[in-house]
C-alpha cells in the first residue's frame, strides 16, 4: 500500500520547523545578513555605475558599460569560484578569516559578499539607469534654472525622484538575490542551503528538512514583500500621493493579484 511506503517523519518536520537547531538558525542568519550587506553595497556601486553610464566622457561611459556587460554576462556561480578559489590559486588574493568588533567573518563569507555585491551591482545599475531616465527632463531644467549645477540637480532633484521608479524592480531583484544565496554553498559558505544539506545527509530526512528550508526561504521573501510595500507607500506619501484607509496588506494583496505591479509599469 502506498501509505505504508510513505516515509515522511512528521514530528521531525515540525520540530525542525518550529524549534530549528542552532546550526540551522546560524545558516538562516548568514543568508539574511549576506543578502542585506551585498544589496546595500550593490545599490551604492550601481548608482555610481548608472551615473557613469550617463557621463559626458566617452571613456567613462565605456568602462561602465564594460563592467555591466561582464558581470551580467557571466554566471554568479562562475564568478564566485573565480573570486574565492581562482584568485587564491593564482596568488592574487586569498580571503582570510577576519575579526572586527569581536565578530569573526569567515573568508568564504567575505568572498560571498564581495561577489554577490558586484554581481548585483550590475543589475542595480541598469535598474537605477532606467529610473533616472524615467525622471522628466524638465525636472533637471527646473533645477538648473534656479542656479543648480548639473551635479546638484542630480543629487537634490533627479536621484530622489528616480527612487520612486527604482524601488519596485529593486525589490524584485533583492527577492531573487536572497534565494540565489543558496549557490554560495559551493564555496563552503555555511548558509541555510549548506546547513540544510548537512542535516539532510546526517539524518536522511531529506524531504522534511528541505521542506523546512523552503518554508524559511518563503518566509524571508514574504517579509521582504511587506517591507517593500511599506517603502513604496512611504515614497508615495512623500510625493503627496496618499490613498486613504490603505494598509500595507492592501498593497501586498494587490501585488499578488496583479503581476504587472512588479515592473516599472507601476507609475501612478
Amino acid at each position: 500500500m502506498l501509505t505504508s511506503t510513505l516515509q515522511f517523519d512528521t514530528s521531525f518536520f515540525w520540530h525542525e520547523l518550529l524549534r530549528p537547531s542552532s546550526g540551522f538558525l546560524g545558516g538562516l542568519w548568514r543568508t539574511v545578513y549576506i543578502s542585506i550587506i551585498a544589496q546595500v553595497i550593490a545599490v551604492i556601486i550601481g548608482l555610481a555605475v548608472a551615473l557613469a553610464r550617463r557621463s559626458t566622457l566617452r571613456l567613462v561611459r565605456s568602462v561602465a558599460g564594460f563592467y555591466v556587460w561582464v558581470l551580467r554576462g557571466t554566471p554568479l556561480l562562475v564568478q564566485l569560484v573565480i573570486v574565492y578559489d581562482g584568485l587564491a590559486a593564482t596568488g592574487i588574493y586569498r580571503f582570510q578569516d577576519m575579526t572586527f568588533l569581536g565578530v569573526t567573518v569567515l573568508a568564504s563569507v567575505q568572498a560571498a559578499i564581495v561577489t554577490l555585491a558586484l554581481n548585483e551591482s550590475a543589475y542595480m545599475s541598469e535598474i537605477i539607469r532606467s529610473g533616472l531616465a524615467a525622471v522628466d527632463v524638465g525636472q533637471n531644467e527646473a533645477a538648473l534654472s534656479i542656479g543648480m549645477t548639473p551635479a546638484q540637480s542630480m543629487r537634490y532633484v533627479v536621484v530622489p525622484q528616480a527612487m520612486r521608479f527604482v524601488i519596485p524592480p529593486l525589490g524584485n531583484d533583492f527577492n531573487a538575490m536572497m534565494k540565489s544565496t543558496s549557490v554560495l554553498s559551493v564555496i563552503g559558505v555555511p548558509e541555510m542551503f549548506l546547513i540544510t544539506q548537512e542535516i539532510s545527509s546526517s539524518t536522511f530526512h531529506t524531504f522534511e528538512i528541505f521542506m523546512d528550508a523552503a518554508l524559511y526561504y518563503l518566509a524571508l521573501t514574504t517579509i521582504w514583500t511587506f517591507i517593500q510595500a511599506w517603502m513604496e507607500a512611504k515614497v508615495d506619501r512623500s510625493w503627496g500621493i496618499v490613498r486613504t484607509n490603505r494598509s500595507v496588506f492592501t498593497t501586498v494583496r494587490e501585488r499578488f493579484q496583479d503581476p504587472r505591479t512588479l515592473g516599472l509599469s507601476r507609475r501612478a
Binding site: 522628466d136 524638465g138 525636472q139 531644467e141 527646473a142 534654472s145 525622484q161 510625493w239
Partner: peptide, 13 residues
C-alpha cells in the same frame, strides 16, 4: 535669471 516653463516642472516630491 528666472525661468518659468510651459509645463511648470515643479518638483513633485
Amino acid at each position: 535669471i528666472g525661468f518659468v516653463f510651459q509645463h511648470f516642472n515643479l518638483f513633485p516630491n
